[in-house]
Write a protein that binds this DNA or RNA. Structure first.
Length: 486
DNA sequence: CGCCTTTGACCCGCGC
DNA sequence: GCGCGGGTCAAAGGCG
């Protein structure tokens, strides 16, 4: 976007979830380049959207469009009230000002109507796209195409293709596995290592839920299956390597240290943390410095959150969720029971050559996102005038990037491999930059929270307002065609 | 007082 | 069976 251009922007008011030590000024994340405002660029000094995203979908009536013109009106209102200008004192001046105000009011009304019309159009477009996606999915399932992932995967690669934020499936406890056939085949080889861990994890999880070993025998088969799935989800790990002097990278979650051990072959201790944002959250992470290069911090995430996440945490959550889902999905060519590291690497990070590695020989299938290859994780940073385009989905014709609210843990981007790959890369890189994370957190908080209402990860199908390019002081640009230059 | 970290003990799986 | 290593528990103490 033309940085010198006075473009329309979205001023996020609610940035309470911003983490780190961002100043209020930094929290005023301006999200601009909203295409549906492009025609208004010259007329609006500042477009302020108060987005109140409902739990399901977008309803234009829920989008309170504050064009910012209230500033002018406020000024006028204040002049009426505070200035104490009495008609008796200055009738002519008062009348002329009144006329000017009425004219301005009329103009603002017209602009408001235009904006509402545009929003309605955008909403209808979004709904149409969503319907199209549903049709595609149903078509795929009806045809029983085992390679059905290609439908969405291919469409996601086309700019003119229809890409709609996927209705992420929930792999968390009680969640449904979207494609059990895949999972069952792919899990055949994992089942061996699962056996030894399922009981352990159920015991651990029970500690918070009053579960006792005696109850184990009473578990139904479905319960056991659910717990096995949970254990499976926990087993998949995502390791993030990043250069950091801090003892821990900022990922937006609240962690409680519950142990520290000296690991073999590494003089640096390994710290164990568990998520404390909700009781019973099974997510753990390990933090350890690299033995070879102690400036490298290795953070390994494991598990799926069972609670809504703050926006800052969604970045890493999406990363690990996407990677874990990719590991656990049946979409990988695993006929021989071995994961194809090349395949997965390209899947998780299709744009990179060596940044993502998948360890199939490790006790746990682990995706390693290496952010240390470049001196700065944000090496792909562009010029100051560039913008960060959230890679949550590709753009539809005439639309900017669709910003679907990042889904929380336990949900997957399984069928949009490239999509998840970009998301993984971006989110991992983003989370390595606390400032960017905080700024992004402020932005997304305003979108999805509408004032603090975090999404629930289980049944929320909402997609917040689309068409957002985020323009933040620290900027990245990512799109399908222009891959991250790791 | 509540939350957190620390740290030794304990559990478990695995290899020999 | 035993030892090793990874992972977790839980009591004790610190801190705001």
């Amino acid at each position: 976007m033309d940085s010198g251009h006075q473009y329309s922007g979205v001023q996020f008011k609610d940035a309470t979830a911003a983490q780190a030590s961002t100043s209020p000024r930094e929290n005023r994340v301006v999200v601009g380049e909203m295409d549906f405002f492009s025609k208004e660029k010259n007329t609006m000094a500042s477009v302020e959207l108060d987005l109140k995203v409902p739990s399901l979908g977008i309803k234009s009536e829920d989008l309170t469009v504050n064009t910012g013109l209230h500033l002018a009106n406020t000024r006028s209102d204040q002049s009426m009230v505070d200035d104490g200008m009495s008609p008796h004192e200055d009738d002519k001046e008062g009348k002329s000002e009144l006329v000017a105000m009425q004219a301005e009011l009329e103009r603002t009304k017209e602009e408001n109507q235009k904006l509402r019309a545009m929003l309605n159009q955008v909403t209808s477009n979004y709904n149409a796209l969503q319907m199209h996606l549903v049709a595609l999915v149903q078509q795929r399932r009806a045809s029983g195409n085992p390679q059905g992932h290609d439908i969405e995967a291919k469409s996601s690669n086309k700019h003119e293709g229809i890409v709609v934020p996927r209705q992420f499936m929930d792999l968390g406890p009680g969640g449904d596995i979207d494609e059990p056939s895949h999972s069952s085949t792919a899990s055949r080889d994992r089942s061996l290592s699962l056996r030894s861990h399922t009981a352990k994890y159920t015991r651990e999880d029970s500690s918070d839920n009053g579960w006792s070993p005696d109850k184990a025998s009473k578990l139904t088969a479905s319960k056991a299956t659910e717990q096995a799935q949970d254990a499976t989800m926990r087993k998949a790990r995502v390791s993030v390597r990043a250069r950091s002097e801090a003892p821990m990278i900022t990922d937006g979650c609240q962690w409680r240290k519950y142990g520290q051990k000296m690991a073999k072959g590494n003089p640096c201790p390994r710290a164990y943390y568990r998520c404390t944002m909700a009781t019973g959250c099974p997510v753990r992470k390990q933090v350890q410095r690299c033995a070879d290069d102690r400036s490298i911090l290795i953070t390994t995430y494991e598990g799926a959150h069972n609670h809504p996440l703050p926006p800052a945490a969604m970045a890493m959550a999406s990363t690990t969720s996407a990677a874990a889902s990719m590991l656990l999905s049946g979409s990988m060519p695993s006929g021989d029971g071995l994961m194809s590291s090349n395949f997965l690497a390209r899947t998780i990070l299709p744009c990179s050559s060596s940044m993502a590695t998948i360890s199939a020989s490790a006790p746990f299938p682990t995706v390693t996102l290496d952010l240390t290859q470049s001196p700065n994780p944000l090496q792909f940073q562009r010029s100051a005038a560039s913008h960060f385009q959230l890679p949550f989905a590709s753009a539809a014709p005439g639309l900017a990037t669709s910003l679907s609210p990042p889904q929380v843990f336990g949900q997957t981007l399984q069928t949009q491999s490239k999509f998840s790959g970009l998301q993984s890369a971006a989110t991992a890189a983003i989370t390595a930059d606390p400032n960017f994370t905080a700024a992004l957190a402020a932005a997304i908080t305003s979108i999805i929270g509408g004032g603090g209402n975090h999404q629930t990860g289980n049944n929320n199908n909402s997609h917040s307002i689309s068409l957002l390019h985020i323009d933040i002081s620290s900027k990245i640009e990512i799109d399908d065609e222009d891959k991250l230059a790791f």
